[in-house]
Amino acid sequence: MHTISNAVALYAVETNAYPNSVDDLVKKDSSGKAYLQSKTTLPDGAEYSINSEGVVSGVFNGVTYDSAANHRMTAAESS
């Protein structure tokens, strides 16, 4: 998740916008540059998401992992 978060930050600095998804980080731009070499998924194959503020998150085994938090949150805690 840190690698994706770092790629989001670099993307934002260079484009003045956050990417809509991890796909945007893998896709090469007009100069052939990509921010990630390949699309990373959670251990169960689920995709990470990127919100409008550039925060990367993913849910695995009922626990939400979030690049902006220093902790994990279960689905019950987030309700």
Score class of each variant (00 low, 15 high):
27 K>I: 11
62 G>Y: 08
64 T>C: 10
39 K>L: 02
48 Y>G: 08
25 L>N: 03
44 D>E: 03
13 V>F: 13
41 T>N: 01
23 D>A: 10
42 L>Y: 01
20 N>R: 10
38 S>H: 07
65 Y>C: 06
59 V>D: 14
49 S>N: 14
74 T>P: 04
32 G>Q: 03
50 I>R: 02
71 H>S: 15
66 D>W: 02
27 K>S: 13
58 G>W: 07
25 L>K: 03
43 P>H: 00
20 N>G: 09
73 M>D: 15
21 S>I: 04
64 T>Q: 11
67 S>K: 06
31 S>W: 02
16 N>T: 08
32 G>A: 06
58 G>T: 06
41 T>I: 03
59 V>G: 06
64 T>G: 11
31 S>K: 11
56 V>R: 04
31 S>D: 11
61 N>S: 14
61 N>V: 13
17 A>K: 13
65 Y>P: 00
38 S>T: 10
53 E>L: 14
52 S>N: 12
35 Y>G: 04
37 Q>W: 15
59 V>A: 08
57 S>F: 08
13 V>K: 15
32 G>N: 02
46 A>W: 14
15 T>Y: 02
52 S>Q: 12
64 T>W: 02
41 T>H: 00
32 G>E: 00
66 D>V: 11
51 N>L: 01
58 G>R: 06
73 M>H: 14
68 A>H: 01
55 V>L: 09
58 G>Q: 11
67 S>D: 09
69 A>W: 13
65 Y>S: 10
35 Y>R: 07
11 Y>E: 06
36 L>M: 04
22 V>D: 11
73 M>G: 15
56 V>W: 04
53 E>M: 15
29 D>Q: 06
30 S>W: 05
66 D>P: 05
72 R>L: 10
43 P>V: 06
61 N>L: 13
64 T>V: 15
16 N>P: 04
13 V>G: 15
49 S>T: 11
30 S>M: 14
28 K>D: 15
23 D>H: 08
40 T>H: 00
12 A>D: 09
16 N>L: 04
70 N>H: 15
70 N>E: 12
18 Y>K: 05
47 E>H: 06
60 F>V: 02
20 N>Y: 12
30 S>E: 13
51 N>T: 09
47 E>R: 01
28 K>W: 11
24 D>H: 05
50 I>H: 04
47 E>W: 10
40 T>V: 09
42 L>R: 13
70 N>W: 09
12 A>H: 08
62 G>D: 08
25 L>T: 02
62 G>W: 09
71 H>T: 11
51 N>W: 05
53 E>P: 10
52 S>A: 12
38 S>K: 08
33 K>L: 03
43 P>E: 07
68 A>E: 10
49 S>P: 08
71 H>L: 10
63 V>P: 00
